[in-house]
């Protein structure tokens, strides 16, 4: 699915990723943990194609394609999804309209006709219900005056509607109370199947109690310093980043 080799990325001359290697296969859930400034968000933005990053070295293969050849929207339509840490507010754009536009962009990319209005209404209703999102919220402007929890639920709603092959969750647990965390995690778990993959970026082991990863990686100074299974997350919780990085 995704194969990152020896990735070196800098922002305005400052090196952020420093020889990062990561390989994610179909059906796998990988957790990426690390302290502030270790390069977690940079990785998620760079993979999504955001401007302002310079790649000095490395390669990224995505489903047999060179990811770097694709524009931001092409990557998205090829199934790469980023659940934002800080989802953007878009004033004047109704949430449901935005969702429909996104779905239709993907359908167009794959040569499918626009989604039928009735089909869309049914789909959005059932998905929103599962995430405890009220119909009223779908009529409001996208992310405007949403609470932190509502914004994160909205990201998961978009994820479930677009049904991506490769989802990156960038600190989706930050700012969530325990109930919202459970709902969001259940949403993610429902999407899991043998054909799609997830990269879950987080500071805390807490989220991983709900979304059980197959692999856990620890990132420090722009590269992965240790990988293991779920028990690594528990170990990290106990010892802290500094000690784990030292023993790496």
């Amino acid at each position: 699915m995704l194969n990152i080799k020896d990735l070196h990325v800098s922002i305005e001359g400052k090196k952020i990723l420093n020889g990062l290697n990561l390989s994610i296969n179909k059906g796998e859930v990988h957790a990426l943990m690390g302290p502030n400034g270790s390069g977690k968000s940079t990785l998620s933005y760079f993979l999504s194609g955001k401007d302002g990053y310079e790649m000095e070295r490395g390669s990224i293969d995505y489903n047999g394609k060179n990811l770097l050849d694709l524009e931001v929207d092409e990557r998205a339509n090829e199934g790469l999804f980023l659940a934002f840490q800080y989802p953007m507010e878009i004033p004047g754009v109704q949430t449901s309209f935005f969702l429909k536009t996104a779905i239709n962009s993907k359908r167009k990319h794959h040569g499918l006709p626009e989604i039928d209005a009735l089909e869309f209404a049914k789909l959005i209703k059932s998905q929103a219900q599962e995430l405890d999102i009220s119909p009223d919220m779908l009529r409001r402007d996208l992310n405007v005056n949403y609470s932190g929890g509502e914004k994160k639920k909205q990201e998961i709603l978009q994820m479930s509607l677009l049904n991506p092959a490769m989802s990156i969750l960038d600190e989706t647990d930050s700012g969530l109370d325990i109930d919202a965390l459970r709902i969001v995690s259940e949403g993610v778990n429902k999407l899991r199947n043998k054909d799609n993959s997830f990269l879950v970026i987080t500071h805390y082991q807490r989220l991983l109690n709900y979304i059980k990863p197959d692999y856990v990686h620890i990132i420090a100074d722009g590269k992965i310093v240790k990988s293991g299974d779920f028990s690594l997350a528990l170990e990290l919780e106990e010892k802290g980043y500094e000690e784990i990085s030292k023993t790496a």
């Binding site: 999504s48 194609g49 955001k50 401007d51 524009e71 931001v72 929207d73 990557r75 998205a76 339509n77 999804f81 980023l82 934002f84 989802p87 953007m88 507010e89 878009i90 935005f98 536009t101 996104a102 962009s105 993907k106 990319h109 978009q158 677009l162």
Partner: peptide, 11 residues
């Protein structure tokens, strides 16, 4: 905002 929309597949 542009990046966000494009990450959702809009050109």
């Amino acid at each position: 905002q542009l990046f966000y929309c494009m990450q959702r597949g809009l050109n």
